[in-house]
């Protein structure tokens, strides 16, 4: 009987932080914005208050277990855009924690994106958009991506897009290219006013970029 009471008590004690949310429990909010209302704090990590709009759940889980570098120059917050030196690796979680964290992150949404198609592009269209990615719009100046030979190339001031097709939701990518202000008030990426057809093809092009295609 005594053990039972202890067990019950322990259960109560441990369930308290769990109710507060595992993100809070793990202190993710010390570096990441988790709440829409929080517009004042300057965070040292990327916004996660719309994680449910942005990420693919499977990628999220894998990232939390085995983090990869997405911003080769670090998450830059200073206005002069000085690269961070000595980047510490992102904390990794156990599979169990990662599952719980990913589930909670996927629940953080701030918009209902218009569903778009993420059907792969034909070879011809891919070549066309790749050309526009590099020349017409100069995306490659700031983003790493894969060239047709499967090599990583491009600038590092923006997040790497090498794994965009596994990492991001197509709807979100389209949203970002169309109305990035929905997600981030002040950005360093130029605004683009793409024709709807171009927007659609760019989204599908980015979704073809996957790290397993690195050669």
């Amino acid at each position: 009987m005594k053990t039972l009471t202890t067990l019950l008590l322990c259960g109560l004690l441990f369930s308290a932080p769990a109710n507060a949310g595992v993100l809070e429990d793990k202190n993710c909010g010390s570096c990441h914005r988790l709440k829409v209302e929080d517009t004042e704090t300057i965070f040292t990590g990327p916004d996660l208050h719309y994680a449910g709009n942005k990420f693919q759940p499977e990628w999220l889980k894998q990232f939390l277990i085995n983090p990869e570098v997405i911003r080769p120059a670090g998450f830059v917050t200073d206005p002069g855009f000085l690269p961070k030196t000595d980047l510490p690796p992102h904390a990794s979680s156990s599979e169990e924690d990662a599952n719980a964290l990913a589930k909670e992150l996927m629940g953080l949404k701030i918009s209902t994106s218009t569903p778009v198609t993420s059907e792969p592009l034909t070879k011809g269209l891919r070549a066309k958009i790749k050309y526009q990615f590099e020349r017409t719009f100069g995306c490659i100046s700031c983003h790493q991506s894969l060239n047709l030979a499967g090599k990583v190339r491009g600038g590092i001031s923006g997040p790497s897009l090498v794994n965009a097709g596994n990492r991001l939701q197509a709807d979100w990518v389209s949203d970002w290219l169309k109305a990035p202000e929905t997600y981030t008030a002040k950005r360093r990426m130029p605004n683009y006013k793409m024709e709807p057809a171009t927007l659609d093809q760019f989204t599908r092009f980015l979704m073809t970029l996957k790290k397993e295609n690195i050669k």
Binding site: A73, P79, G80, F81, C142, R153, G155, S157, R188, P190
Partner: peptide, 26 residues
Amino acid sequence: RQTYQWYCSQCHGVKGKGDGINAKFL
């Protein structure tokens, strides 16, 4: 100046010398 720092320094560098963090990848 702030506009230049915020957007242009990514490539042109903080002092405009063409040595921003993207420079060596272009």
